[in-house]
Design a binder for these strands. Structure first.
Lengths: 196, 196
DNA sequence: CAATTAACCTAACGATCGTTCGGCAGGGGA
DNA sequence: TCCCCTGCCGAACGATCGTTAGGTTAATTG
């Protein structure tokens, strides 16, 4: 089945187009006719590749959060003290959010559009991501190299800060990606009370 | 016109109901029929109080951002060094976000739903809010009591962190509001490199 | 008391929504 | 050659959308 390449291209193209439209207008303000028009096909043809509109959103979120989770787990699993692990997670987080800025923004802003089991599944992925950060904070506190008043609040502050980058960062901006990444690593260190 | 109280009540009730529904389902997933049903009236009656659905959202955002801006300006205008002004702004920000958690969340997540001049107006209010923070950071750098690598990025980090509180804070939560407020003041100090 | 107006109603408009049905073109396998 | 399957299409379904026109009620005003 060498035509799976063509199918894969169409599927992937539909996902990209949908993500772009969801980011610009929001999930509910984007119609299947909009997606079809930009993708160069008719609305009915989309249903050959996806079961429905919400399925497209699910696939986008599952893909992004899954990748975010696996890269964060790899980063957190590498040997080192808590600050080193935190820095690795922040760098992985930032680079993936920069590489997938569109779908990252959609994932963070359209959680309300999901319903039923898919919503629970996505929320579970997000919770696991939070726990990675909180585990590092606990280790840092235990080792006496981090000073935070409340681990949960500190993790919320870290995640809100790190997620917010998709709202302003642009690849052609004033600062290079790696400069921005290192500023967020420094900010994370400061938030956690890591002594420089 | 003592019946202005009744009209004011209905208008205010419609605003509250709309904010609650916009927060739960999002602006585009909320219909005028939904709003009318929860408010105990018929869809057509809403148009006696508002020109249309988007007008309701505009009014919610204008009201919240206007109040946020005025309280922040008062906080920033009080005499004191940069850290003192920053702490005052953070406290005002947190207390207003806690008091108006619903409309605060709507304001932060439904900007895409606004179009035309109203969108520009709301964006201008948000920009003025950013500038308040950036002015304080500039003063802190000038006085040598703050250490940030980039003022714009630092302000984005601060605002993302401070805005994110609406996504997890609940009035009946584990910590009192003032405890949370002071943790965010401490976090802001750390982010800005204020020496303790 | 007459006139006005605010507040709300019923009913319906045209548009658009997500989705489905049945069919058409064409290439690969038997 | 025949068949089937993939990919796409035209057309339409029922539902729901934001909004409006016009009427009714009750309170206020002059």
């Amino acid at each position: 089945m060498e035509d799976s390449a063509r199918q894969g291209n169409t599927r992937e193209r539909l996902l990209e187009v949908s993500a772009e439209l969801f980011r610009e207008r929001g999930f509910h303000a984007t119609s299947m006719r909009d997606i079809a028009r930009v993708a160069g096909m008719r609305p009915a043809s989309i249903y050959h590749h996806f079961a429905g509109k919400e399925t497209i959103l699910q696939e986008l979120m599952r893909g992004f959060l899954g990748e975010l989770l696996s890269t964060a787990q790899s980063a957190a699993a590498q040997a080192g003290d808590a600050p080193g692990r935190l820095a690795a997670v922040v760098r992985a987080h930032m680079r993936l959010h920069a590489a997938c800025a569109t779908v990252a923004l959609v994932t963070d802003t359209e959680l309300r559009a999901l319903q039923g089991p898919a919503r629970q599944e996505i929320l579970a992925l997000r919770d696991r991501y939070e726990e990675i950060v909180q585990d590092i904070l606990r280790q840092g506190m235990r080792d006496g190299v981090m000073q935070v008043t409340d681990i949960k609040i500190a993790s919320y502050q870290l995640l809100a800060m790190g997620t917010g980058v998709v709202f302003w960062w642009r690849p052609d901006g004033r600062l290079s990606l790696e400069e921005v990444v290192e500023q967020y690593v420094l900010a994370a260190y400061r938030l956690c009370g890591v002594h420089p």
